[in-house]
């Protein structure tokens, strides 16, 4: 077969299909069980007193093991956000949607999730939000147990109250 006749081959498809298990470890197990079995958000206190959610296998600042479990609220404050307008492979929501950093009441650093229940252009820093959970029989071992966060109706938080969390 002459190359000239058909042109050079510039791309071949060679699919890679590998299946992995996740090794959750004790800390992630605590977090995932809370989501599925109790509709609660569990974090852990670090040796210097901060509450991490999801809990980490070790304190990122000191490298020491984490301490006791702490339940944090499913209400929080949007610290910052962006509006996603771009279609991306694997996406489950239809753009546009809001991707936000939310500092849950009782946590020391933000959790990332999406915001719904408002027009996309109404999203703002300082907005108070609460979790919208899946029905009890649809809860899973994943953050997907929370559909999204939505406005809680509380007044916006002052910039000074969350600016350390940006």
């Amino acid at each position: 077969m002459s190359e000239d006749a058909q042109g050079p081959i510039t791309m071949i498809r060679t699919p890679v299909d590998l299946e992995y298990n996740i090794s959750a470890g004790p800390d992630l197990t605590l977090f995932l069980r809370g989501l599925k079995e109790e509709k609660k958000l569990y974090g852990r206190r670090s040796p210097n007193g901060d509450v991490y959610i999801p809990p980490r296998g070790a304190c990122p600042v000191t490298g020491q093991p984490m301490l006791e479990e702490v339940e944090v609220s499913d209400h929080g404050t949007v610290t910052t956000f962006c509006l996603i307008n771009i279609p991306i492979e694997g996406q489950e929501l239809k753009p546009p949607y809001v991707f936000a950093a939310i500092i849950l009441d009782g946590a020391s650093l933000p959790l990332f999730h999406m915001i719904a229940g408002i027009a996309a252009d109404e999203a703002r820093m300082g907005m108070r939000v609460k979790a919208n959970w899946k029905p009890d029989d649809e809860l899973v071992l994943s953050l997907e147990s929370i559909n999204y966060f939505e406005p809680s109706g509380e007044p916006d938080a002052d910039y000074d109250s969350y600016k350390e969390h940006l």
Binding site: S23, A24, G25, P26, D27, L28, R56, G57, A58, G63, Q64, P65
Partner: peptide
């Protein structure tokens, strides 16, 4: 253990 816990 997770990888983080092993490394720790």
């Amino acid at each position: 253990l997770s990888e983080i816990e092993m490394v720790q």
